[in-house]
Each structure stands twice: as C-alpha cells, then as structure tokens.
C-alpha cells in the first residue's frame, strides 16, 4: 500500500514537471502562471500522498500551508499584471 502511494506521488510530480514545460513555451504571462498554479496543486497532492505513504503526519500540515500559499501566488500575479486596461491607461495618461 505504501509503495503504491509513494509511486503515485512520484507520478503526480512527474506530471507537474511535464506541466512546467509550459513555462518555457508559454506565450503569455497567464500561461506561465497556470503552470505555477499546477505546481502548487501537484505539490499539495504529492505531499498528501507522501504523508500517507511514509506515515509522516507532519507532511499533511505542510500541504495545508502550501494550499494556503498557492492562492496568493495568482493574486500577486493579477495585481502586478501590467495595468493595460483602456480605462486605466486613460486614467494614468490623463
């Protein structure tokens, strides 16, 4: 049972590593942001699987923290995205 969980964690991390290729190729900032979001979620899943696989309950707390922080990454991205909205550009240029 434990081996299966650890193998599943490895598989999820492999998927996330595959998804990170989108950061290299991603045309827009949003695509790179998505890969970072996938990294967050994949990290949470892998942590939970490892917590169950290796009977380390502390890893569940680490996943809880990662789940909290994953949201702020995107909020920071959207806030700092270049404010190119037409209305805002008029406001800033005026």
């Amino acid at each position: 049972m434990a081996e299966f969980l650890i193998a599943a964690a490895g598989f999820v991390l492999a998927m996330v590593a595959l998804g990170l290729a989108r950061i290299l190729r991603g045309p827009g900032d949003a695509d790179r942001m998505m890969a970072a979001q996938l990294l967050g979620t994949g990290g949470i899943a892998a942590l939970l699987l490892l917590a169950a696989g290796t009977d380390v309950p502390a890893a569940v707390d680490a996943a809880l923290t990662l789940a909290l922080l994953a949201a702020f990454v995107a909020v920071a991205f959207v806030n700092n995205a270049p404010r190119t909205d037409a209305a805002e550009r008029r406001a800033t240029d005026g």
């Binding site: 979001q37 967050g40 909290l68 995107a74 991205f77 959207v78």
Partner: peptide
C-alpha cells in the same frame, strides 16, 4: 477555494 479564485483572476 484557491483554484476557483485563481481561475477567475487569470
């Protein structure tokens, strides 16, 4: 919750 918010913002 994070996924829902992030998706809308992105």
């Amino acid at each position: 919750l994070a996924g829902a918010i992030v998706t809308q913002l992105v």
